[in-house]
């Protein structure tokens, strides 16, 4: 089986079969990762650049590890945000790297649509590791994979996404993926952090009350408050945010059902989620991180073989 696309720009461009293929391929890689020898030769002689125009620890390490487990050669390139405006253009940077015989580009960028722009101008396969407030497709894939492990299905499942929906590429990718796979999605957060047209645009439920979201859902995906993306005041204080929208232990205990709690990291403990929930029995946050490597191996593997 092959993916219907040459790049992974976003979940928006995938069909359910693509998503299914990535998830099932990831399962195979996850099995590999349980063995004593975790390395496979699949991408031997493939060179991949990790181009990070925005800070990242987890995603960059996860990609790098996935590349190494597949025996690819990796190249890391981190550019501070400000240098993009005064220095070399994105296209020049990438073309320079490609002329050194690099096969694939993993890119994180602060501008929405940056990987789409690149895909129009360069021949190499591009994997979006997060673009602006648009998408973070591998995060949504690993979230789906983690949900599947616990709940065994996506279709008909109720998933609440709680927090800063407006600035979150994780939210958008998750909404695309979950609705494409037949799950129901509700977003919850303060009105200033929820896009005005989200209901009509994406077919999700909206609530401003976190208790309503928790009572409704099977899965709660709690998002990080993206202080760095806000260019105007969208809520009063972190203290008030935590008081009203933070996920606390008593809220979860009150629910008479088994829900799972997720977070894409890095966590602002005591802001969007309290420590006893993040580290508690419902949390699968560390499983998400573990599954990230398998998902990224699957994506890299499927796109590297795209022309064969």
């Amino acid at each position: 089986m092959k993916l219907s696309t040459q790049n992974l720009l976003g979940i928006r461009n995938l069909n359910p079969e693509d998503i299914q293929l990535i998830l099932s391929t990831a399962q195979q890689f996850k099995d590999v990762l349980q063995r004593p020898v975790k390395k496979v030769p699949s991408l031997r002689d493939v060179t991949i650049v990790n181009l990070f125009y925005e800070n990242s620890t987890r995603t960059r390490m996860s990609f790098e590890l996935a590349e190494k487990r597949l025996s690819a050669d990796t190249l890391n390139f981190a550019v501070s945000n400000s240098s993009t405006s005064k220095g070399e253009t994105l296209l020049d940077t990438v073309n320079n790297i490609l002329s050194m015989k690099v096969d694939m580009v993993v890119m994180r960028h602060s501008a929405s649509g940056a990987p789409h722009f690149l895909a129009k101008h360069i021949p190499a396969a591009i994997i979006n590791a997060g673009d602006g407030i648009n998408e973070h497709p591998t995060q949504a894939l690993l979230d789906a994979f983690s949900i599947l492990e616990k709940k065994k299905k996506l279709k008909g499942l109720k998933v609440a996404i709680i927090g800063d929906i407006l600035h979150s590429r994780v939210a958008l990718s998750n909404i695309y993926l979950l609705t494409k796979m037949g799950a129901e999605v509700m977003v919850a957060g303060p009105p200033t952090l929820i896009p005005k047209y989200i209901k009509e645009a994406l077919g999700v439920h909206v609530t401003y009350h976190v208790s309503e979201a928790l009572a409704w859902c099977d899965v709660a995906n709690v998002l990080r408050i993206q202080l760095e993306r806000q260019n105007q005041p969208l809520f009063s204080s972190l203290r008030e945010y935590n008081l009203v929208y933070g996920i606390k232990k008593d809220m979860v205990d009150k629910l008479k059902k088994e829900i799972i709690i997720m977070h894409p990291g890095p966590i602002n403990r005591g802001v969007e989620i309290d420590s006893d929930v993040a580290d508690g029995p419902h949390s699968i946050i560390l499983n998400q991180v573990e599954n990230g490597v398998a998902i990224r191996m699957a994506v890299l593997y499927l796109l590297a073989n795209r022309e064969n």
Binding site: S112, G113, G132, I133, R169, L172, Y197, I198, E200, A201
Partner: peptide
């Protein structure tokens, strides 16, 4: 509008 929400712009 709907399109900007879908495009993440």
């Amino acid at each position: 509008g709907i399109i900007s929400t879908r495009l993440g712009l």
